[in-house]
Design a binder for these strands. Sequence first.
DNA 1: ATAGATCATTGGAAGGAGAG
DNA 2: CTCTCCTTCCAATGATCTAT
Length: 203
Amino acid sequence: AETRTVASPPEDEAQRALLLTAARCHGVGTAADLADYFRIRPAEAHPRLEELVADGRLSRCTVEGWSVPAYRHPGVVIPKQVEGRALLSPFDPVVWFRPRAERLFGFRYRVEIYVPAGKREFGYYVLPFLLGDRLVARVDLKADRAGDRLLARGVFVESGEDREEVAGELSSELDRLASFLDLNEVVVGRRGNLAKTLRAVRA
DNA sequence: ATAGATCATTGGAAGGAGAG
DNA sequence: CTCTCCTTCCAATGATCTAT
């Protein structure tokens, strides 16, 4: 095998390249959104972003409801509609940067495995439920290997969502996840404002 | 105010010990 | 060799405290 030595790029150039990649992955985002993607300090990201704007590689824009300016990648396309249905990992890019998730979806999310048990709001290991272009619910899951069951210990719907529809879609997704995890059945607990509807849907 | 450091919390994976 | 049991280690972010 042949190896080539390539000089490390200057830091500012590397940061611009990383921020441009972040912008491509985000479509549109605030300086804080883009900086966090590769963990660049905001104080350094700001001048790098302005340099990219000056070069024409990014454009500045405003987003309705956002209090700070945004940066848009020129290649971004806006889909006519977004179809999707997924239980997200706590570390999924959709929710990774909590302020962005909250700003975009009105979805306040914390990974409560790090929160003392008594102070947990939703549960130990809670996955957001993405449906279409919204985060419509969250569910506290546990794979009970010994019992061969997927436990949905708490199920919570966001306000303003259609409970029946969300419960139906979530029910299907839980079956899919149980199958993926090679677990025999899904057991829905009693905690949460969607637990009752979900249990009824599955009955 | 803001940044940095430190500790807290569990599931699971990996590896060793010991039994058969 | 295979299996089980046990211990150790790792992953991640949030809460809290300290320092600037």
